[in-house]
């Protein structure tokens, strides 16, 4: 029986390997060390704050983040801006509120409880301003792409001149990591584009890493709590399992059968 199982598994793996090889047009994404991966993975606070800066100064002119509120910026496990900092950030945006007692909509400075202000009124307006392409909402973007953070990190650095024989339409750019290689977003990052408050040198690589970290947090704001709880839960389960194992041995020792 064992022999046949092995032969079968062998055939299975050979087949899957062949199929994988045949399907192998996959691009290798650029790799970097993500602080939030692994059993104890946590976000790098500095990177999150810098990432927020890149998002606001670069991305947010086209990309919304409709599920985030300014209060999230102060929450534990996030960029952890102080409340005053976050209030100042919120107040720097103009929010449309209302209707007031006269039935009029009015503008006021943002508050912590406001959602991130959207760059466009609606999807149509966003498309009209971007040559027909809708800049996707970035709230869960890091989970909404195959390849996740590695893909986004690579994409931001993947712009290059198109190879010979490929002609691009007006407003279309070549990116070696994009599906189909054609992307309607132009290269947004260049060295020194953002002046980091903490003095970090803003290379394209650094900014890509920071903004991607920020996007991961935006998509999974409770990631740190999840990792912490997961470790405790699994340690607890392992201890309990061990205890139950010995109880089981003890109970079954009353009859002469191996468990």
């Amino acid at each position: 029986m064992n022999k046949f199982l092995k032969i079968n598994l062998f055939i299975y793996f050979i087949l899957t390997a062949t199929c994988n090889a045949l399907a192998a047009e996959k691009v290798e994404y650029l790799k970097t060390d993500w602080s939030f991966k692994g059993l104890f993975g946590k976000f790098d606070r500095g990177s999150l704050q810098r990432g927020y800066q890149v998002y606001t100064e670069v991305c947010s002119s086209c990309h919304s983040m409709k599920y985030l509120s300014y209060r999230n910026l102060t929450e534990k496990g996030g960029p952890e801006f102080t409340e005053d900092q976050a209030k100042a950030i919120a107040a720097s945006f103009e929010v449309t509120d209302g209707p007031n007692a006269d039935g009029e909509m009015f503008k006021r400075p943002g508050k912590l409880s406001d959602k991130f202000v959207m760059p466009y009124e609606n999807v149509k307006a966003a498309q009209a301003a971007n040559g027909g392409a809708y800049p996707p909402d970035m709230s869960v973007l890091a989970k909404a792409r195959g390849g996740g953070v590695d893909y986004i990190y690579s994409l931001l650095q993947g712009y290059e001149d198109p190879p010979m024989g490929i002609t691009l339409d007006e407003g279309v750019y070549y990116n070696k990591f994009m599906y189909g290689n054609k992307i309607k977003m132009s290269n947004q990052l260049s060295d020194g584009l953002v002046e980091y408050a903490d003095g970090t040198v803003s290379t394209v690589e650094q900014m890509s890493k920071d903004v991607t970290t920020f996007l991961m947090w935006a998509a999974e704001p409770h990631l740190e709590a999840r990792h912490r709880m997961g470790f405790k839960a699994i340690v607890y389960l392992i201890i309990l399992t061990t205890l139950v194992y010995f109880s089981m041995k003890r109970i079954w020792s009353r009859i002469e059968t191996e468990v």
């Binding site: 059993l39 997961g230 470790f231 699994i234 389960l237 309990l240 399992t241 139950v244 089981m248």
Partner: peptide
């Protein structure tokens, strides 16, 4: 007790998915 032991082993695998790779079985 035997079912309980097996269930706990199963729960360890379950917990690993929930806490460490919660989206791996879904589609992006």
């Amino acid at each position: 007790i035997k079912d309980g032991f097996a269930l706990l082993m199963f729960m360890i695998v379950f917990a690993f998915f929930v806490f460490y790779t919660p989206n791996i079985l879904g589609h992006a």
